Amino acid sequence: MTASNTGNRSDTGLLVHRCAFACMALFVALLTTGCHHKAKVSRHYPPPPPTRSPSRAAPSTSTAQRGLHGGPLPSYAIPDPNVDDNAIASGHTNSTETGLASWYGPPYHNRQGANGEVYDQNAMTAAHRTLPMGTVVRVTNLTTSQSVTVKITDRGPFVHGRLIDLSLAAAKETGIYRMGLAKVRVEVLEQRPGADLGGKWCVQIGAFLDKNNAWRLQSDLQRRYATSAKVIEFQGPTGHWVRINPISASRTQALQIASAIHAAEPDAQAYLVRLD
């Protein structure tokens, strides 16, 4: 092999290596350039759920726990744990009561009320546990002196320390809509024609978030009152409830039963309720 042939082969090998290196560099450059210009993938996130207006809640989470403009509640709006709700709500048709008022709207709007009619949050109505259905009352906000006349069409509020639940429209008329809670005076103006003076009464216990707890209580109470009352369990918007219907349907017997009930769950209160 001559020196000339050796030099030519060396030059050829060097040229091949240079070409390979150049191709590799070009590939890397193209790869890098491609990454920088990679199209971005747009992501579509679902919108947040719509906000809801205040509504009646279970006893453990009350409708509105803040005062005007989100400030703290006044001292009178803090329920006294030693006060007996059933003793306050007398249900007398010629009475004047003083206590806390709240209001309820969605999700109760267009649902059937305790009187069998569809609840309209824009009507001048209210819920009361013991006044006869159809009773007309005047509710006066003792803080603002605003008042409204409403008809009792529903049962409630089932929250410790509350006397009456106003419809959304009635709450706006009395200034309670923004306050959330207010001390009010409830004056009976008109009784429903033909209303039973004695009334038909029961005891409601709840609300239970776990239906099994409601079933256990129902079973225990049915054994205890096997001969004097009928005990049923049912589901409401705020949870599961147990109702004791005394055979006599008298207020006296219902009050005795309510006083003897001590549910294991702290939020499960026993409420005296008028059925008619």
Rank of each mutant, 00 (worst) to 15 (best):
T143V: 13
L131E: 03
Y271Q: 01
R224M: 11
R138F: 02
V273S: 03
S248Q: 14
P266W: 12
A249P: 03
T51G: 10
F21T: 13
P237M: 05
R224W: 04
T96H: 12
G71R: 10
H109F: 04
A20Q: 11
T135Q: 06
I257H: 04
P46R: 12
S219C: 07
W201E: 05
G175L: 03
T12H: 05
R251Q: 13
G180R: 02
E233H: 05
G199W: 12
S250V: 09
A195P: 05
H69W: 12
L209Q: 14
T96S: 15
T149S: 08
N94S: 15
H36P: 03
A25E: 08
R129A: 14
P74S: 10
L275T: 15
V118I: 14
P157N: 01
R224Y: 02
A182G: 15
A58F: 01
S42R: 04
T143W: 01
E187P: 00
G71K: 10
F208H: 10
T6A: 08
G236H: 02
K183F: 03
P106S: 09
S147F: 01
H128V: 04
D120N: 11
A89F: 00
K172S: 12
A171H: 15
V83E: 11
Y225W: 11
G236I: 00
N122S: 13
V41T: 14
A64F: 06
T51M: 12
Y271F: 14
Y45D: 10
P193R: 13
N5P: 01
T96L: 09
A114S: 15
P72N: 10
P193C: 11
K172G: 10
T144R: 14
V184A: 13
R111Y: 01
C23M: 07
I176W: 06
K40Y: 07
S60R: 11
R178K: 14
R178A: 13
A3M: 10
I88G: 00
P81W: 02
A195V: 08
V188H: 01
G113W: 00
D165A: 15
P237W: 11
T63L: 03
L163M: 13
I247P: 01
H240C: 09
Q204G: 00
S167H: 09
A270E: 02
Y225D: 08
G194R: 06
V150I: 08
I247F: 11
Q253S: 03
H128T: 04
Q218L: 07
D267Y: 11
Q218C: 08
A226W: 07
I164N: 05
